[in-house]
């Protein structure tokens, strides 16, 4: 099914699905940032780079979902 054939209620369902995933990813990023800051201030620098990579991966997923949303609106 092409985007133009999707009804608004279908698009609303899609946007709810995307929103749910984005919320989960953002909460995960918030937890990552808090845990990393705590570890960093405690002198543990080993987790800093893996946590940053995980956060960037979450951002990439979110950006991909946003892109899908923009395409959906066209």
């Amino acid at each position: 099914m092409t985007n133009s054939r999707r009804t608004r209620s279908q698009r609303l369902s899609i946007i709810y699905g995307i929103l749910s995933i984005v919320v989960v990813l953002v909460v995960m990023q918030l937890w990552l940032l808090t845990a990393t800051m705590n570890a960093f201030l405690g002198g543990n620098h080993t987790v800093v780079v893996p946590a940053a990579l995980a956060s960037i991966a979450c951002l990439g997923l979110n950006a991909g979902l946003l892109r899908y949303l923009v395409v959906l609106d066209r």
Partner: peptide, 27 residues
């Protein structure tokens, strides 16, 4: 509702960008 959810999703992605910038700052 559609417009509000779409805008909220965009705002959350911006928040996600801010968190990623925070992580890079810690690095």
């Amino acid at each position: 509702e559609y417009g509000a959810r779409r805008d909220f999703t965009k705002f959350l992605v911006l928040t996600s960008l801010a968190f990623a910038c925070g992580q890079i700052w810690i690095v």
